[in-house]
Design a protein around this nucleic acid. Structure first.
Lengths: 371, 371
DNA sequence: AGGGTTCCTTGAATCGGTTCACCGACATGG
DNA sequence: CCATGTCGGTGAACCGATTCAAGGAACCCT
């Protein structure tokens, strides 16, 4: 016996298909006696209620929204930042009795479950690094979406923080502490998984809005404090430990005075820097101060607890979900704040330059290198 | 202009609907020239490829699998155990290009996105506490499913660990350390969010297989070691901090000698016990030893690092996903191991009973109580 | 020329519901 | 007695694809 359909029940109960549909979806429209007859017929042939696939096709609503990110599912699920975002989204989904699915927009994932094939009512785009592609894909699909961390997106909702201001706050903190040489651990500034120093040429071609805004924010402060550009060097890396280790190697290469403070664009990177620094025998914050970004759960538990920029990630998620469900298309900007913990301190005395313009501070004894 | 359909493209290109479908799904079946004519027509009217909803209705496949748990989405997403499980599942989904959705089987969530309405190819049931209901619901829905932590489920896949053996190992560890009075922090043993001591009557009516097996495992060891049942008391609580605090209050009530070791059925509970104990002025492991269960990421980072039973949660996820995708219906049992860290030690000397049967060890000075 | 292949393409059935215009019957009001 | 409602139910169009048996054209072989 094949699976029972609405039509079969109708036949058996001697009513029209539409009536059976009503029994399940709007019972109050059907006289009680008849309703029971239908239910009895349904039970008899093992009909468990209208099949969802049919409903979706007809009604166009799936009651499911997607979080999409430009990474593998496995990465997304394990990224602490994404976790918090999803947590916020989940709260709103609970309230609305809406489902949640994770969509990977990895490389060329066009088959299976992807942005182009997912049966959902809308997307929340989580732009880890690339903003263009995700927005582009979502737009092509023609479903409503809200972009997180992509700056203003015409015609769609967007939620952000003021990255430039937040970054400036981080920079101001280390400058205030007396640091005059700082290394920046930058997120990728463009497609292509490139790693390396961000020089002027590279800076000019930045396409990702988040790293750009933060770089600008840092620079604002250093300029204002009269710190020469040569004292500030940014290295672009991926958001993982090996890549950060590479960056630290570059930033602390022998032959030049090394930074006394590191500004990382994510807590994940900052925490990875702990390890890379320890590996070279450098202590935090004794030798080097570190400021993170995001304030993920691990930041507080780290040793030493990480000074970082807190951004309300769960709020971002909540707000994005809310906008998606209501169809709002605003651009909301959430507040950030500096959380001072124990990973920052004044630079070690020997390294503190007597004067901001004293660039050749290379009498500094080099700490243990390599391993 | 309404949204373009397969049929519209067919009309414009002067071919049949079936051919257009082939152009998108099995291009190799269509002569190149014609294929290009169709593609051109599609582009002209802005047709972006076959709508997924139609495909699913017809083909019956959605390329999406669900993780179901008996809690709110927000809870699931934040539960460290669930996170690891999902992480494992995500890996397999990545390989298979399958999507992942989280389904809450909370209370009476029958509308919106639920077990009865989700459009998926199958379920992975994550039985936090209740096994019956989820299996029941999934069976009613008539889709394939794999149950995690529910014991053997006839007609479906199941993945478990040997909880009894694992629990025994935990108990053996503290007994070996010299402990003779132990408190057990049990997960709920049945529906209804009850908290309280698990006496013989309660024990007799346990319905959830996981806590039952673990309780049995503990008991095996205590019997074998000749520790009188009166020295072992179990308290049933929810998997959260307030509930654990209540349990600790009960276990350390004044007037009786308190346990020197605690066996918790989850790391979440064990870690919550840290706080509750600290609150009473008791140190871990100085005054009280604690053993957790699961070995979540937090366990290692905790202070002191938690001794616990490691179960391969990600493997569970991987295995479950694999089984779901291949349609296997085995009952696989994954191995566990005891991970000894710093939350366990010998009991404080004053408390160590001179003889296993010496129950009235109440000369023990009571440590600071309450706050 | 006839028979057999190969390669495309077509047409139509099907997947399983939702929804809405419309209709019959019965009650109410003037 | 006729107009007006109201209630409950019917029928059929429609949502947007997939799939497969069958047909036709072109080509090969004998």
């Amino acid at each position: 016996m094949r699976k029972a359909r609405l039509k079969d029940v109708a036949l058996l109960a001697g009513v029209s298909q539409g009536t059976v549909s009503n029994v399940f979806n709007r019972p109050e429209l059907v006289r009680e006696e008849l309703r029971e007859r239908v239910l009895a017929a349904a039970k008899k042939i093992g009909f468990r209620g209208p099949a969802p696939a049919g409903r979706v096709l007809r009604s166009g609503r799936s009651d499911l929204i997607a979080v999409v990110a430009d990474a593998s599912l496995h990465y997304i699920v394990n990224d602490p930042f994404a976790q918090k975002l999803i947590s916020g989204i989940a709260e709103i989904c609970d309230e609305a009795h809406i489902g949640l699915t994770i969509v990977s927009a990895d490389a060329e994932r066009r088959d299976g479950w992807s942005i182009e094939t997912a049966i959902v009512d809308g997307f929340i785009l989580f732009c880890i690094s690339e903003e263009n592609r995700l927005v582009e894909l979502a737009r092509r699909r023609g479903l409503p979406f809200v972009a997180v961390d992509s700056g203003d997106v015409p015609g769609a909702g967007a939620v952000d923080v003021d990255d430039r201001k937040a970054a400036a706050e981080a920079a101001r903190h280390v400058v205030g502490l007396g640091h005059r040489r700082v290394g920046i651990l930058s997120l990728e500034v463009d497609d292509g998984e490139r790693t390396g120093f961000v020089d002027d040429a590279r800076f000019a071609q930045i396409r990702f809005t988040t790293p750009r805004a933060r770089l600008l924010g840092y620079r604002d402060v250093f300029e204002e404090a009269g710190i020469p550009p040569a004292n500030v060097v940014a290295y672009e890396c991926l958001n993982d430990a090996p890549s950060v280790a590479e960056a630290i190697d570059a930033l602390f290469a022998p032959g030049a005075p090394h930074p006394t403070a590191i500004l990382a664009m994510s807590d994940t990177m900052a925490l990875a820097a702990y390890a890379a620094l320890a590996h070279r025998g450098l202590s935090v914050p004794g030798d080097v101060s570190i400021v993170g970004f995001d304030d993920v759960a691990e930041a507080e538990r780290a040793v030493p607890p990480l000074t970082t920029i807190r951004q309300p990630v769960e709020d971002k998620g909540r707000e994005a979900a809310r906008m998606l469900l209501t169809g709002a298309r605003d651009h909301v900007i959430l507040p950030t704040s500096l959380v001072v913990r124990a990973s920052t301190a004044a630079p070690p005395p020997a390294v503190r330059a007597p004067d901001a313009s004293a660039e050749a501070g290379s009498r500094v004894p080099e700490p243990a290198r390599d391993a």
